[in-house]
Computed example of a mutant assay.
Amino acid sequence: MSDPVTILVDADACPVKEEVYRVAQRHKAHVRVVSNSPFRVPVSERVKRVVVSDGFDAADDWIADNAGPRSVVITADILLAERCLKAGANVLRHNGKPFDAASIGSAIATRAIMEDLRAGMDGVGGGPPPFSKADRSNFLQALDRVLVKLGK
């Protein structure tokens, strides 16, 4: 029997933690909820809260250091996604769109362009679109697909 799949959740500002717990339970996957401050997590042998220091990128560092071929990382952080892809992990955004080798380069470039645009706007701007029911549904389907693939 191979090692269990572990879902690593970049928990700060993650809108799909409850969905992760449900899908993980169905697939008997382990979950690590990583954050700088405590979050309530379900009482389960498979679900563990990992509270790191509030140092810059401490949660990202923990996730990247623990990511690998038998893990699924849930994050919106493009630079963390890149680090985890290099470690062989599967990486999903909160809306279910995967980060992969083909998309990470353009995502990093877009991030840099948007950062430059925001810098010139003096705090005026919209940010990402609101999280929708369709995003939640897409995420559930994407996570299920990845866990089925890793379970084979």
Rank of each mutant, 00 (worst) to 15 (best):
K48C: 03
G125W: 11
D116H: 11
K97M: 15
A87E: 00
V33C: 06
G151W: 09
V91W: 02
A76R: 13
M1S: 08
M121R: 10
L80P: 05
V5N: 00
I108S: 03
G126E: 15
R136N: 08
K17Q: 04
D65Q: 09
M1Q: 08
A87V: 07
V5S: 04
F39W: 08
R145K: 15
G96T: 11
A109N: 11
V41A: 00
V41M: 02
V20K: 02
R22T: 10
I108K: 07
D54E: 12
L143V: 07
L80D: 00
E19C: 12
S53A: 12
K152W: 13
I7F: 03
P38W: 03
S132H: 11
L143P: 00
R118H: 04
S71F: 05
F99R: 13
L117V: 05
P130E: 11
D10K: 07
T75A: 02
G55P: 11
I78D: 07
A11D: 01
P98N: 12
G68T: 09
V72R: 00
G88N: 06
L150N: 09
D135R: 09
G127Q: 05
Y21C: 03
G88L: 05
D60C: 05
C84Y: 07
R40A: 09
P98R: 14
D10N: 06
A24E: 03
K149Y: 15
R145V: 13
D116N: 10
R22L: 09
D54K: 15
P42E: 00
G123Y: 03
I74G: 02
K97S: 14
A81P: 05
A119E: 01
V91L: 10
D12Q: 04
I74A: 05
C84L: 05
